[in-house]
């Protein structure tokens, strides 16, 4: 699968990047392509392009806050989860997505 994700947290930056790493590792381990955009206190990094969003099989929004430029994510198949869930159990999240999309 092609997985794209956006991570963002309320207090600043650490959880955003912890979630990014967790999703990347879990997706790669399960044999998927993955790109994760971060919306931390440093602003938007590793921005998802329109093409990447269109080609993705699923978009994971791991966020506790309102995302910036969220109009990009309309009409795309997505799941929204808390940042903590991505950090603690990214593997489980991706497994569930695999089952749903299978």
């Amino acid at each position: 699968m092609k997985i794209v994700a956006v991570t963002a947290c309320a207090t600043g930056v650490a959880h955003t990047f912890m979630a990014k790493r967790a999703i990347e590792d879990a997706a790669k381990k399960r044999g998927h392509e993955v790109k994760v955009e971060t919306q931390g206190a440093t602003g938007i990094e590793n921005t998802l392009t329109r093409k990447e969003l269109e080609e993705a099989d699923i978009l994971i929004l791991a966020t506790d806050i309102k995302l910036a430029r969220s109009e990009r994510f309309e009409n795309i198949k997505k799941v929204t989860i808390p940042v903590a869930t991505a950090i603690k159990n990214a593997n489980g999240v991706i497994k569930k997505i695999e089952e749903k999309l299978a």
């Binding site: 930056v13 650490a14 959880h15 955003t16 912890m18 790493r21 967790a22 590792d25 440093t42 950090i87």
Partner: peptide, 17 residues
């Protein structure tokens, strides 16, 4: 501030490994 955020993001990303 900028250094801080850079350090913290690097650290939190790598420490997940």
């Amino acid at each position: 501030e900028a250094q801080h955020l850079k350090l913290l993001s690097k650290l939190s990303y790598n420490l997940m490994d």
